[in-house]
Amino acid sequence: MTGLWIVAGVLVVGVIAGMVLRAGNGRIRATGRERGLPESVVSALDPQSAVTLVQISTTFCAPCRQTRALLSSLAEKTEGLRHVDLDVTDRPEVAQALGVLRTPTTLAFTPSGEELLRISGVPSGPAVLDALAGPLSRVS
């Protein structure tokens, strides 16, 4: 009987953990922070684009590939938007400097390096455009 209670408890904890992770997937958080950025991020920022989306990925991450396809397509179709994918598999210090705990995480930066927002997980294209409507509307 004790074994059944243990199994039931583990299942409940697993379901709750899954729900918490799923709720945070693709969530967009506005940040407005300025911090010292790693050189690989600074060199990725495009002074000609209103917003640069910097995607933090790892080699064996399936959601990273999905995010890369979505954001690349979005950047191609949207004036003033650029997408860069940084693989941090061999450079964990980049993820650590940015405070990234999971992949994919996408950060939106102004040309000056101000972080506008961050997205954990696979985002929704329309939600990204809505969140960046202000900075992208200033594109001439």
Score class of each variant (00 low, 15 high):
3 G>V: 12
4 L>Y: 09
7 V>Q: 03
7 V>T: 05
8 A>G: 08
11 L>G: 13
14 G>L: 10
15 V>P: 06
17 A>F: 09
17 A>V: 14
23 A>S: 15
26 G>I: 06
30 A>F: 10
31 T>Y: 01
35 R>P: 01
36 G>H: 11
37 L>N: 00
39 E>P: 02
41 V>D: 07
41 V>E: 08
41 V>A: 00
42 V>Y: 01
44 A>P: 01
48 Q>S: 12
49 S>D: 04
49 S>F: 01
53 L>D: 09
53 L>S: 13
58 T>V: 07
59 T>A: 00
60 F>H: 10
64 C>Q: 06
65 R>K: 15
67 T>R: 03
70 L>H: 02
71 L>I: 03
72 S>M: 07
74 L>R: 05
77 K>W: 06
77 K>R: 15
80 G>S: 05
82 R>P: 00
85 D>Q: 13
85 D>H: 13
86 L>I: 14
87 D>S: 13
94 V>K: 12
95 A>N: 03
103 T>C: 02
103 T>V: 06
104 P>Q: 01
104 P>S: 01
105 T>N: 00
105 T>K: 01
107 L>F: 11
119 I>F: 05
123 P>M: 13
123 P>W: 07
126 P>G: 15
129 L>E: 01
131 A>Q: 09
132 L>R: 02
135 P>C: 02
138 R>D: 06
140 S>R: 10
